[in-house]
Amino acid sequence: MSYPNKVAIVTGAASGIGLGITEHLLSNGAKVVVGDLNTVQGTKVVDELKKKYGDDKVAFCAVNVTDWASVVALFAFCYTTFGNRIDYVFANAGIAQMNEMRSSNPSHFATTQHPSLDTLGDRPPSLAVVRVNLDGVLYTLHAALAYFRAQDKDADGWRGKFVATGSNALKEGNILTEDARNRSFYPFPNDPLYAASKQGVLGTCRAVGPKVIDEGITVNCFGPSVVATGLAPPEFIAMLEREHRLTPMKTVTDGVDVFINRKSKVTGQIIENCGLKNVFRSIPSYMDAAARANMNEFHPSDQIDAALSVEGASLDVVA
């Protein structure tokens, strides 16, 4: 794929998947604003990327995706830095309840043991994971739509393309096995807040994607299995690598290309990335004619079906 002079914002881009997407875009001709809460790491990464790709290709902007004013400032910075246009927005910033990725921490949201119900009101759960992973995506999407709608379509008919980082919330197992292929997205008891937030990302993309396609805008997400990032403990990453179950960054960026290439009309979809394989996860069919008719009251079902078509996208669709 080639994205000459396209302009992109990537949040959470100072490390992990966000950095991988950033390098992929830069290596294919795009200009990128690296958005991240970690100013020290972000500045360091951008300095290194400038040496490789050029000072005029990449810039850093500090952003807190849970703060609306900060998100607005990020978009304004990108717009003025790279020529009053934004073609791609990647809402990638995310966190997890780290202690609970491979252990049973008693302070975890769903397993906390309270010494007394009398003082329960003093111990609210922290919903920071939801604030970053879901609210941050919603803020970023809201700003992206505003900017996309304010600019003309490009030569291929697009105002802009939005991609969020979801998850398959897969703890163990391999999507290449027949058992995994026959399941929907996976329960993730280790971190229910992470699972809830990523399900929210998927629901948002499936709802907004069909709504905006006629405006020349697409909205999608991808759901990676375990990639070597800071969200998973190093020993866990090492184990998966030894067992050849770690998903390489190239699998993720191959999925990204399906969404943002100039010919792609894909919207409202999620691509699962696991190992060397990318697949679309199918959207559930209507339970019966009555269920379809009821949903049709809110938005024409035929229009949704047409918008969500992935014909010609060259990936398998897995239920």
Rank of each mutant, 00 (worst) to 15 (best):
K6V: 03
K6N: 09
V10E: 01
A13E: 09
H24I: 10
L25H: 08
G35A: 03
K44V: 11
K44L: 13
V46I: 01
L49C: 01
V65W: 06
T66R: 11
D67L: 09
D67E: 13
V71A: 08
N84Y: 11
S103A: 15
S104K: 15
S107V: 12
T112D: 06
D118V: 14
T119H: 10
L120S: 09
P125I: 05
R131K: 15
L134C: 06
G136P: 06
V137T: 06
V137E: 00
H142R: 15
A146T: 15
Y147W: 07
Y147L: 00
A150P: 01
Q151M: 02
D154Q: 01
K161S: 03
G166M: 05
A169Q: 11
A180R: 14
N182E: 05
Y186S: 12
G203N: 07
T204Q: 12
R206V: 07
K211P: 00
K211T: 14
N220D: 06
F222H: 07
G230L: 10
L231C: 04
M239K: 15
L240P: 08
L240H: 10
G255K: 08
D257C: 06
D257S: 12
G268K: 03
C274A: 14
N278I: 07
V279K: 11
S285N: 14
M287P: 01
D305G: 03
S309Y: 00
E311A: 11
A313P: 00
